[in-house]
Design a protein around this nucleic acid. Structure first.
Length: 456
RNA sequence: CGGGGUAUGGCGCAGUCUGGUAGCGCGUCGGUUUUGGGUACCGAAGGCCGUUGGUUCGAAUCCAGCUACCCCGACCA
């Protein structure tokens, strides 16, 4: 508990935050530029990145928020290895199908191994070894783990990297109807996950690609720099997110949500086309033809893997049945970039409070001045005691530099303590997102900051 | 994999055409100073100029090969 507390708040002078003033030349899009400038990531080789402390903090918050919604929807977390045996993939037939995107390696005994690009085979192997009865269904297992796909052309920083983090969940059901409910639960969980991160998710019909199957949706965040082209009804952007109180076991209620979110036309350019779109949405002003970033993808693929790998359960009538499966992916590393892409301004990143690396940037404008130091230290202690994550800029930098840095790293609320304000008995608070500033008495700081955080 | 480009301190760049042993801005470190939107000054550290080979008395610079990285197209979280 004590250690958690320590890790959550930080003095900048003791932190590792390598801010860059100049933009590295390779960074073409805002999120990549800002992540490098804010000292969140560092490239190690093409498509492979280190996550520096500030970036890693955000990544962990994103992962934890995903966890919360996966757990709420009934999925159960486990952890599978990154290195897999080629034999598993030979069983499903994908060892040869996957091609050069799969990183193949040999161990010291010359056995064929691989760095997993996904885990359908492995989870099916785990399932079939332990689950034998329909009574143990439904089951949804997930993990959050590094993946490696040897992309032909990695680009845009962590937006499309070769090594990346993926949350992948796998559902097992006794028949198609039950499997669709499992699919629907993940559909709802995804909507909630992205919405809680301050995004407007657009679920679009998608191609099933090499994963296979016949029911699939991509969750896309609109952004000009996105690589997915999509056609969608504008109404989707105003649709209401399913509430946390939704009963995930209520099949009809969950279906109702999915129906609401899928009744309007929305498809990627691989699945749909312009003519079809225009026919479906006659009102031109209600059409969105845009680019977006794919942050999640869900599939129902029936018995494709369970049949290939012989994963069966015994049914009530005593007969064996191949289980119906689905898989559900979110890319937390890409998501961090997508959030920045969607939420930034000319001064830097604008984090939503739910995933901000710290809640508060505390700026001491005159380090070394007794009154200012004392006031800042007090504010630091009070905010920390109130359970807020604080990054206290206690460096010797001038005020200008501190303001620029604070705007760049985009913490939701800035608490600004300087001699001018203190002379009037005031501390200045600034909301990063709106730029709105208010001056308050030092004793009010915690209360007002908490109010501000509720709205961002 | 096809097309285009780049490689010089942590970041951004100049120097290459016209060979003579490396420079600027920012950052970093030490000090002084300053402090309400990148404060100023003094001092310091840091680069076998991507790599291998060649030409030459001498190569960051000329020639050849290789490698890495970036950008534009087909795949994905």
């Amino acid at each position: 508990m004590m250690q958690n507390q320590k890790a959550r708040t930080m003095k900048l002078s003791k932190y590792f935050l390598p801010i860059l003033r100049d933009t590295p030349k390779e960074a073409e899009i805002a999120s990549h530029r800002l992540m490098l400038r804010a000292g969140m990531i560092r490239q190690q080789s093409a498509g492979i990145y280190s996550w520096l402390p500030l970036g890693y903090k955000v990544l962990q918050k994103v992962e934890n928020l995903i966890r919360e919604e996966q757990n709420r929807a009934g999925a159960i977390e486990l952890k599978m290895p990154t290195i897999q045996s080629a034999d598993l993939w030979r069983e499903s037939g994908r060892y040869d199908d996957y091609g050069k995107e799969m990183l193949r390696i040999k161990d010291r005994h010359e056995r064929d191994m691989l760095f997993g690009p996904t885990n359908e085979e492995m989870i099916t192997e785990i399932f079939r070894g332990s689950v034998k009865s329909y009574k143990d269904l439904p089951l949804n297992l997930y993990h959050i783990q590094l993946k490696f796909r040897d992309e032909v052309r990695p680009r845009f920083g962590v937006m499309r990297s070769r090594e990346f983090v993926m949350k992948d969940a796998y559902s097992f059901d006794m028949d198609e109807a039950a499997a669709v409910h499992s699919y629907n639960k993940m559909f709802v969980a995804y909507l909630r996950t992205f919405a809680r991160m301050g995004l407007k998710p657009v679920p679009v019909m998608a191609d099933t690609g090499p994963i296979g199957g016949n029911l699939s949706h991509e969750f896309v965040i609109l952004a000009d720099t996105g690589e997915t082209r999509l056609f969608a009804h504008k109404g989707l952007l105003e649709e209401t997110i399913p509430p946390a109180s939704l009963d995930y076991d209520n099949v009809a209620a969950v279906q109702e949500q999915v129906t609401k979110w899928t009744q309007r036309y929305a498809a990627t350019d691989e699945k749909g086309n312009e003519a079809e779109f225009h026919a479906a949405v006659s009102d031109e002003s209600a059409r969105i033809e845009a680019r977006g970033i794919e942050v999640g993808h869900i599939f129902y693929f029936g018995t494709k893997y369970s049949a290939a790998m012989n994963a069966q359960v015994q049914m009530p009538d005593g007969k064996l049945q191949h289980v119906h499966m689905g898989s559900y992916g979110i890319g937390p590393t890409r998501l961090v970039a997508a959030i920045i892409e969607a939420l930034h301004d000319e001064n830097g990143i604008v984090w939503p409070a739910s995933i901000a690396p710290f809640h508060v940037a505390l700026l001491n404008l005159k380090v070394g001045d007794a009154a200012t130091d004392t006031a800042a230290q007090e504010a630091y202690a009070q905010l920390t005691a109130a359970g807020l994550d604080v990054l206290y800029d206690d460096t010797q930098d001038g005020p200008g530099a501190k303001f620029k840095t604070a705007d760049l790293i985009g913490l939701p609320v800035q608490v600004i303590i300087g001699p001018k304000g203190l002379a009037e008995g005031k501390v200045e608070l600034k909301i990063r997102k709106t730029g709105e500033r208010v001056s308050v008495a030092p004793s009010e700081v915690v209360k007002i900051v908490q109010q501000m955080l509720k709205n961002v």
